[in-house]
């Protein structure tokens, strides 16, 4: 399906909750509201025409003093198309639901986002640290403006 067809199909189903990002990339980029996030993921996987069966990655982005975002890159094997779905999270209390029951691959991506950004995923089956060491006690390192022990920022030239 082309970019316009995917956009039209999702807009049909989700209407005002879906916001389209205008850019000149060949894939469609969307923002979805928090309330319909799980439903969109579920629809994207199970709908026979969209058939997004491959979660390529789930990444978190921190906009300081503004918001967090979780971006999903979805791909389809059979239909050979891609899409990027993003959801905005509150800055002081970033939480959302887990989608690891829809795509098993999301399990480790969400664990990483939890420990590096501090985003909570409700219902995650195994919320343990993945990459940082056990006694890590210094906050969430991937947030902008974080400093900690043994962190030497590159000097500006």
């Amino acid at each position: 399906m082309t970019k316009e067809q995917i956009t039209a199909r999702l807009k049909d189903k989700f209407g005002p909750e879906l916001e389209i990002v205008e850019n000149n990339q060949p894939e469609p980029y969307f923002y979805i509201s928090m309330a319909k996030y799980y439903e969109l993921c579920s629809y994207a996987k199970n709908d026979p025409q969209l058939d997004f069966d491959f979660l390529f990655q789930l990444g978190a982005v921190h906009y300081p003093d503004d918001r967090f975002e979780v971006a999903l890159c979805l791909c389809s094997h059979e239909k050979n198309h891609k899409a990027v779905v993003k959801v905005r999270l509150d800055h002081d209390n970033p939480e959302t639901v887990t989608i690891s029951d829809i795509w098993k691959a999301a399990n480790w991506f969400e664990r990483e986002a939890m420990e590096l950004f501090g985003i909570g995923f409700f219902g995650h089956p195994d919320p343990q640290p993945l990459l940082l060491y056990d006694d890590w006690d210094y906050g969430y390192p991937m947030r902008k403006g974080w400093t900690g022990p043994d962190f030497v920022p590159m000097p500006e030239k």
Partner: peptide, 10 residues
């Protein structure tokens, strides 16, 4: 990995 790295032993 000396600069900007929070997890590497220098």
């Amino acid at each position: 990995f000396y600069y900007d790295c929070y997890s590497v032993l220098k």
